[in-house]
Design a protein around this nucleic acid. Structure first.
Lengths: 247, 247
DNA sequence: GGCGGTTATTGATGCAAGTCAAATAGGCCT
DNA sequence: AGGCCTATTTGACTTGCATCAATAACCGCC
């Protein structure tokens, strides 16, 4: 565990330093620590543990999941570099989700109390933390809700497209992605059966939308993929979800 | 539009003033304004409008909804007194949802820029705003995800139970609730067909869980209602969602 | 109080996706 | 390389909920 430099981090523009001056970033660096490297299956936080730190992913990939009162597992999200997790535990004071590495992963730790104090000192940091919270809130409103009564095909297409977009925002300029999570995790995350994921991936291959080699997925046709996300919505769903006439 | 007193507001403990000293609440009051009374169908914010204010509900009820790119409507949430909306627009700079009154409703307006400045001045206010954001984020993670692949029965039971809990937290000490939203709005919100809502409400009546008189719902058996939320999870869902063995 | 529109209910039918079951492929250890 | 365990795929069958269609209740309004 050593003090880490945000100034040199490739993810700084997606993370807390965005909008801060050089001096302010230096102050932030003083409270950031980089964890030891995590490996597949290593737990970073455990559901129920006392909340004290936020985590930012420097490299690798994580999954967040929880067990409800009946012991049923829910895979909530997959986190990519530059993303911060733990924000939803500020209020509850305990982590509501376990997070584990899906891959070799490096993380930064931020003590929340220290961060909060620094936010009072540095308005730009406060501003950015509000922004990050708001962004997460927005996407948790928009994404799952649109997944809500979509067909399985739309959900999966949306999932792949969303991942591609996020990879690209992180400088990954290829259409090939390595998805380190299992089919079961994907299925659980989308509220589908693993068998359905299999069948859909095959369908996407047959339609030349994707090429798949085990856990490596290549997007062959971004346009087709994108259209799969929305198109179906105009057939069914219209009685339930009424379509806007005017605005 | 007149300056409004948070000090006397019955909802202050659910809202921004929580944790603030008397003097601090006074400072907050200076930037809070109460809107004119809104009536059924009145729009408070429109999807796409430039974001500048947060809103807190003083009394009444609102629904938040959006139209996606294909023009399909999604009812995202119903808001009760003491709840704040607009938080998810901070990052995006535009409201992602329209909000309209379902009932006679009084609201407080908070200019976000002023609030942000005040947060830098008053650490307890910053703290509380982080808490409110975090709480919303947590519940948007936990609730919809648990709704995700529940049966229609579980979803609706969960919805009613959630509303009851929120009403009770607001001092409503009866098991009778007036739900001002249409069946279609409920259906849309839960990702079900309105017909399914009808049939389920009838089933709940037959099972003596609820008594329903049009839009007035009385919970006859809280225990049964609560058990409906979870019970089914142990039959199906187990292959998809695996159940925890140890912890 | 009766009329027209919307909202809610009820019944009949079909299909998408879940479930069950079995085969195949991968990954990892020795 | 072989063996074992887990992940994934594939096929056959079932079902919960959506859809379609029609009736009934509610609400505002003249």
């Amino acid at each position: 565990m050593y003090t880490h430099s945000c100034s040199n981090c490739a993810m700084s523009d997606l993370c807390l330093p965005l909008g801060l001056s050089k001096q302010e970033v230096q102050k932030l660096e003083e409270i950031v620590q980089t964890t030891a490297v995590k490996h597949v299956g290593d737990k970073i936080v455990r559901q129920g543990d006392k909340f004290d730190k936020l985590y930012a992913i420097k490299s690798g990939m994580c999954k967040a999941y929880r067990f409800d009162e009946s012991g049923v597992e829910y895979v909530q999200s997959f986190h990519l570099p530059g993303e911060i997790f733990g924000l939803d535990a500020i209020y509850a004071k305990h982590y509501g989700f376990s997070v584990e590495a899906l891959d070799t992963t490096v993380l930064c730790e931020l003590d929340y109390r220290q961060l909060q104090n620094l936010c009072s000192e540095i308005p730009a940091l406060q501003h950015q933390l509000f922004n990050l919270l708001s962004r997460d809130l927005y996407s948790s409103h928009v994404n799952p809700i649109e997944h809500f009564d979509q067909s399985a095909e739309q959900k999966l297409a949306g999932f792949v497209h969303n991942l591609l977009t996020r990879f690209q925002a992180r400088g990954h300029n290829s259409l090939e992605m390595q998805l380190p999570m299992s089919r079961r995790d994907i299925a659980n995350h989308l509220g589908l059966a693993p068998e359905t994921i299999s069948r859909l991936l095959k369908r996407f291959q047959n339609n030349e939308v994707l090429a798949i080699d085990n856990r490596i997925v290549s997007v062959l046709d971004v346009g087709k993929l994108q259209s799969l996300v929305h198109c179906h919505a105009l057939e069914a769903r219209i009685t339930r979800r009424q379509v806007s006439k005017a605005g």
